[in-house]
């Protein structure tokens, strides 16, 4: 149910409500609304990703892997992993002695991911799990590395999700959150806003015949906590040595935190 269009509305304002892009909706509804968005974009997700970011998302993801310290034998959780770009790379590096779990709340995204990875010959050490980031169905201290790329902003209760990630991470393990953030330069910020609110939904309409979903994506980017706020949120649930790195002028930021 949509009760407000106030862009400043946050989930902290009200226990029962949260934002869905710029709209404020019942918390219970958001999960399904996000699900609908990704159900509808799943088939065209990869091509849209390339188009929208002009291919740069691949470099942001490579940087995430370079910062992960991954090596053979590691157990990695690619959370909100969608169509599995990170999983494919991790799977090759962790090898037969390691394991990668691609987890996503949406079965349509998981299915596209599984088919894609199979076509790429990525098999053997990858498991596919449908799961909500807020309640991860894994035992405590399971993973050496957790990544969540462009996923956290879609999660209804981000604090709960971060706490859940902390729980399933092994001591010594690290979390990497790759997410759209706030450009550091005001001019870039303006240009980026113009791009995401005017051009992005149009590209979405043209290529995926779905302007609404891409309007939501643009709004959800704007509503996502900026760099310092997310860093404090990670610290609040227990992460230590938290840092972040702005990429492409802060359009995207990579946050990192350890569990000791």
């Amino acid at each position: 149910m949509i009760v407000s269009n106030n862009p400043q509305a946050t989930e902290q304002n009200n226990q029962e409500q949260t934002h869905f892009g710029f709209k404020t909706v019942d918390k219970t509804q958001k999960v399904n609304m996000v699900k609908d968005v990704f159900q509808s974009v799943a088939a065209k997700y990869d091509i849209m990703n390339d188009l929208m970011s002009m291919g740069i998302h691949r470099l942001w993801k490579r940087y995430t892997i370079d910062c992960s310290g991954v090596r053979a034998g590691h157990k990695v959780l690619d959370l909100a992993g969608g169509t599995g770009d990170l999983t494919a790379k991790f799977s090759r590096i962790v090898g037969e002695s390691g394991q990668v779990v691609l987890a996503d709340i949406n079965d349509a995204m998981l299915k596209v991911g599984r088919d894609k990875l199979r076509d790429l010959g990525v098999v053997g050490n990858v498991d596919y799990v449908q799961a909500n980031a807020e309640e991860l169905p894994f035992p405590d201290n399971t993973f050496d590395i957790i990544t969540i790329a462009f996923g956290l902003r879609n999660v209804t209760d981000k604090d709960k999700a971060l706490a859940s990630m902390y729980r399933v991470l092994k001591p010594g393990g690290r979390l990497l959150v790759l997410e759209f953030s706030k450009p550091t330069n005001e001019l870039l910020n303006k240009a980026y806003d113009a791009y995401s609110f005017h051009l992005l939904p149009k590209i979405g309409q043209l290529v995926a015949n779905d302007a609404d979903s891409y309007q939501y994506l643009a709004e959800s980017i704007r509503m996502h906590p900026e760099q310092e706020v997310l860093k404090s949120m990670m610290e609040a649930v227990g992460f230590e040595q938290t840092t972040y790195q702005n990429l492409t002028g802060g359009i995207v930021a990579l946050h990192r935190g350890f569990k000791f």
Partner: peptide, 20 residues
């Protein structure tokens, strides 16, 4: 260079260098 059925090439960044 990580070797599997193909070669995965990474950049060694200081942020990831705590690895083995």
């Amino acid at each position: 260079f990580h070797f599997s059925d193909e070669i995965s090439l990474g950049v060694v960044v200081s942020e990831g260098s705590e690895s083995a």
